[in-house]
Amino acid sequence: MKVVAAMSGGVDSAVAAARAVEAGHEVVGVHLALSRMPGTLRTGARGCCTIEDSMDAQRAANIIGIPYYVWDFSERFKLDVVEDFIDEYAAGRTPNPCMRCNERIKFSALLEKALALGFDAVATGHYADVRRDADGNAELHRAATWAKDQSYVLGVLTADQLEHSLFPLGSTPSKAEVRAEAAARGFSVANKPDSHDICFIPDGNTRGWLAEKVGAEQGDILDRSGKVLGTHQGALAFTIGQRKGLSIGYPSDDGMPRFVLEVQPKTNTVVVGPKEALDLSELAGTKFSWAGLGPVESGISTVGEDGAILPFECEVQIRAHADPVAAVVSVEDGEMVIRPVEPINGVSPGQTAVVYVGTRVLGQCTIARTVSAVPVPA
């Protein structure tokens, strides 16, 4: 196959590109330029989009012996990832920019361009696995090693995108093995630290960056009944589950700590309450998709008389490194509805819930609403 290897400048993508060549594919290395003003040194930009990263990718491509190009997706990235991030926070939601980047850049914009140029697939350094069912349909599965599994951030991929995706590291037992392989191949990135933080917020100060982009105004802190308890200097400075920094000045009636339950930027209010109110009995989202065949086509569920997808047992994961929890999922009135077997906490609208059946990623939704397991007092 003719393959575009997305080379970020890190060790994983370099080894993935080399393995794609050894698998017999005709490979071209591509680095995505996602910023018009990238940081030049990693000390000032802790993500994966610096000029230094581009140079690291080129050195690896030269060693592998493949053509190397830089494709400018900065405008698309700005619109589809950065501005989406700002808009979501301004609406009171907590977005995952890595999910949006995979969905709209790496496996949409990049894949679309690759296919248009006559390539067959895109290879990345993600730790995940594409397998085939008995009929040859592509399925997304967890990687061999739980510690590095990245299937969560790939949960947004569609059946067609999976057909054109290669993950050469999916069966690798450990990151240490990838680093050892990189060193043996002579890659300078063999011991390069993993990227972290949000790549377009180089200093890691997300709150300060958002305050500059969205602004901060004084507003009310409310209890669950709507009573004003105090004031804040900007709703976006608060996160669901936060305990410290509320500065209300007096204890709750029962003397127990208060926690942030909701952030409502449209009214510039923050709702606080007891810790147990963070426990959720239901999550739901209208923006959902299936990674390959859906639950009905896969024989996991059936359709009811009203056309809804009937409840089926699964596991749901809310964050990239969170443990999955048992849940029951259905599709009702255009929503993916997730009901965890035990209440789940620390969840915010805007986050992505990825649904698993065994090791398989079945699909995902962007959480639009939640239901507390603890009713609001009358």
Rank of each mutant, 00 (worst) to 15 (best):
Leu278Val: 08
Gly346Ser: 08
Ala322Tyr: 12
Leu278Tyr: 05
Pro168Ser: 07
Val15His: 10
Glu177Met: 06
Ala180Glu: 15
Val374Gly: 00
Phe312Asp: 04
Asp279Lys: 06
Glu88Cys: 13
Thr370Tyr: 03
Gln161Arg: 15
Pro97Cys: 13
His31Thr: 15
Ser348Phe: 12
Asp129Glu: 15
Arg179Thr: 06
Gly170Thr: 04
Thr359Met: 04
Ile64Gly: 09
Arg42Lys: 13
Ala308Thr: 10
Gly136Met: 11
Gly255Arg: 05
Ile86Gln: 04
Asp129Gln: 11
Leu278Thr: 13
Asp323Gln: 09
Ala211Trp: 02
Met336Arg: 08
Ser188Asp: 13
Ser174Pro: 03
Met37Gly: 03
Gly208Ala: 10
Gln161Ser: 11
Gln242Ala: 13
Ile201Lys: 12
Arg360Leu: 04
Trp71Cys: 02
Phe200Ala: 06
Glu112His: 01
Gly47Thr: 13
Met1Lys: 11
Gly9Tyr: 03
Ser330Glu: 14
Leu34Thr: 09
Ala147Tyr: 14
Ser225Lys: 06
Glu282Asn: 05
Ala368Cys: 03
His232Thr: 09
Thr145Ile: 02
His164Asp: 03
Glu282Lys: 10
Pro375His: 06
Ala147Arg: 14
Leu41Met: 11
Met37Asn: 14
Arg142Gln: 12
Val122Gly: 09
Glu103Trp: 11
Gln58His: 14
Lys244Met: 08
Asp253Cys: 00
Ala284His: 05
Phe167Tyr: 15
His232Gly: 12
Pro349Glu: 01
Ala190Met: 02
Gly299Glu: 06
Arg360Pro: 00
Pro349Ala: 01
Phe200Pro: 07
Glu88Leu: 13
Cys199Lys: 04
Val178Ser: 08
Gln317Pro: 04
Arg59Ile: 09
Ile198Cys: 08
Thr43Pro: 00
Arg360Tyr: 05
Gln364Lys: 09
Thr231Val: 10
Thr40Tyr: 07
Thr43His: 13
Val271Lys: 00
Ala60Ile: 06
Asp194Arg: 06
Ile66Ser: 09
Asp333Arg: 08
Ala123Asn: 06
Phe200Met: 07
Leu110Trp: 05
Asp53Ser: 05
Leu293Cys: 08
Tyr250Thr: 10
Asn62Glu: 15
Leu154Glu: 12
Thr40Leu: 11
Ala368Phe: 03
Cys101His: 07
Val21Ala: 03
Ala144Ile: 03
Gln351Ser: 06
Thr43Ala: 15
Glu313Gly: 02
Ile86Ala: 06
Val354His: 02
Met99Ala: 12
Ser74Val: 03
Gln364His: 14
Thr269Phe: 00
Glu297Met: 12
Trp209Val: 08
Pro67Ser: 12
Pro257Ile: 01
Ile105Met: 12
Arg339Tyr: 05
Glu342Lys: 14
Ser195Ile: 01
Thr172Ser: 07
Phe238Gly: 03
Asp135Asn: 14
Phe119Tyr: 15
Leu310Glu: 13
Val376Gly: 00
Val354Asn: 02
Lys244Asn: 10
Val296Leu: 12
Ala277Ser: 15
Leu115Gln: 14
Glu262Pro: 00
Val270His: 01
Ala216Phe: 01
Pro377Gly: 09
Glu52Trp: 05
Tyr127Phe: 15
Gly170Tyr: 03
Phe119Ala: 01
Ala353Ser: 09
Arg243Asp: 00
Lys113Phe: 01
Ile51Gln: 09
Gly186Thr: 02
Gly170Glu: 02
Trp290Asp: 11
Thr370Pro: 01
